[in-house]
Amino acid sequence: MLEGKVKWFNSEKGFGFIEVEGQDDVFVHFSAIQGEGFKTLEEGQAVSAEIVEGNRGPQAANVTKEA
């Protein structure tokens, strides 16, 4: 698991990027966000996630919002 913060997230398109210190930004799709209801993230929000290899490079999986 790694910790980072949301760089930006487009709720209409359902994707965005997470900033991780010392690494390239990581793509995040709404389907990777854990929880019930409408899955979205806010800019600057702290999150933790796993990194997996997607079709277009590294992407976030099992994204959870930090308190």
Rank of each mutant, 00 (worst) to 15 (best):
M1I: 13
M1C: 13
M1W: 13
M1T: 13
L2W: 11
E3L: 14
E3P: 13
E3I: 15
G4E: 03
G4S: 02
G4R: 00
K5N: 08
K5A: 06
V6F: 03
V6D: 05
V6N: 02
V6K: 01
V6P: 01
V6S: 00
K7F: 05
K7N: 05
W8T: 00
W8L: 00
W8A: 00
W8S: 00
F9Q: 01
F9D: 01
F9M: 01
F9W: 15
F9L: 00
F9K: 00
N10F: 06
N10L: 07
N10H: 09
N10I: 06
N10M: 05
N10T: 05
S11G: 09
S11T: 12
S11R: 14
E12T: 13
E12A: 12
E12M: 12
E12L: 13
K13I: 08
K13M: 10
K13C: 10
K13A: 08
K13H: 10
G14K: 01
G14A: 01
G14H: 02
G14T: 03
G14E: 00
G14P: 00
F15V: 06
F15G: 00
G16C: 05
G16V: 02
F17V: 08
F17W: 08
F17M: 08
I18G: 00
I18R: 00
E19C: 14
E19N: 07
E19R: 12
E19F: 10
E21Y: 12
E21I: 11
E21P: 13
G22W: 05
G22F: 07
G22C: 09
G22I: 03
G22Y: 06
G22D: 07
G22T: 03
Q23V: 09
Q23L: 13
Q23C: 12
Q23R: 15
Q23M: 14
D24W: 10
D24K: 14
D24Q: 13
D24V: 12
D24L: 12
D24I: 12
D25N: 08
D25G: 04
D25Y: 07
V26C: 06
V26S: 00
F27D: 01
F27Q: 02
F27I: 02
F27V: 02
F27T: 01
V28W: 02
V28A: 02
H29A: 01
H29E: 03
H29M: 04
H29P: 02
H29S: 02
H29L: 04
F30P: 02
F30A: 05
F30N: 02
F30R: 04
F30M: 05
S31Q: 07
S31W: 08
S31M: 08
S31K: 07
S31Y: 04
A32F: 06
A32Y: 05
A32W: 05
A32H: 06
A32K: 04
I33W: 03
I33K: 00
I33L: 07
I33R: 00
I33A: 01
Q34S: 11
G35E: 09
G35W: 08
G35R: 00
E36A: 12
E36V: 12
G37S: 06
G37T: 06
G37H: 06
G37W: 06
G37M: 05
F38H: 07
F38R: 07
F38T: 06
F38N: 06
F38Y: 12
K39L: 10
K39P: 05
K39S: 04
K39H: 06
K39F: 04
T40R: 08
T40S: 10
T40Q: 07
L41A: 04
L41Q: 02
L41M: 05
E42G: 09
E42H: 14
E42A: 11
E42K: 14
E42R: 14
E42C: 15
E43I: 15
E43K: 15
E43V: 15
E43A: 15
E43D: 09
G44I: 02
G44L: 04
A46H: 14
A46W: 15
A46E: 09
A46Q: 13
A46S: 12
V47Y: 01
V47T: 01
S48V: 12
S48P: 02
S48E: 07
A49S: 07
E50S: 13
E50T: 14
E50L: 14
E50P: 03
E50C: 13
I51R: 08
I51P: 00
I51D: 02
I51L: 10
V52F: 09
V52S: 08
V52R: 09
V52N: 06
V52T: 09
V52D: 04
E53H: 13
E53Y: 15
E53L: 14
G54R: 06
G54I: 03
G54A: 06
G54P: 02
N55W: 14
N55H: 14
R56P: 07
R56I: 08
R56D: 07
G57V: 03
G57Q: 04
G57S: 07
G57M: 06
P58W: 11
P58Q: 09
P58H: 09
P58V: 09
Q59P: 03
Q59L: 07
Q59W: 13
Q59R: 09
Q59M: 12
Q59H: 10
Q59D: 03
A60P: 01
A60C: 07
A60I: 03
A61P: 03
A61W: 09
A61D: 06
A61Q: 11
N62V: 10
N62L: 10
N62Q: 09
N62Y: 11
V63L: 07
V63D: 01
V63G: 01
V63A: 01
V63E: 03
T64I: 15
T64D: 06
T64S: 10
K65Y: 10
K65H: 08
K65D: 05
K65Q: 09
K65R: 10
K65M: 10
E66Q: 15
E66G: 14
E66Y: 15
E66W: 13
A67G: 12
A67P: 13
A67R: 09
A67H: 13
A67W: 12
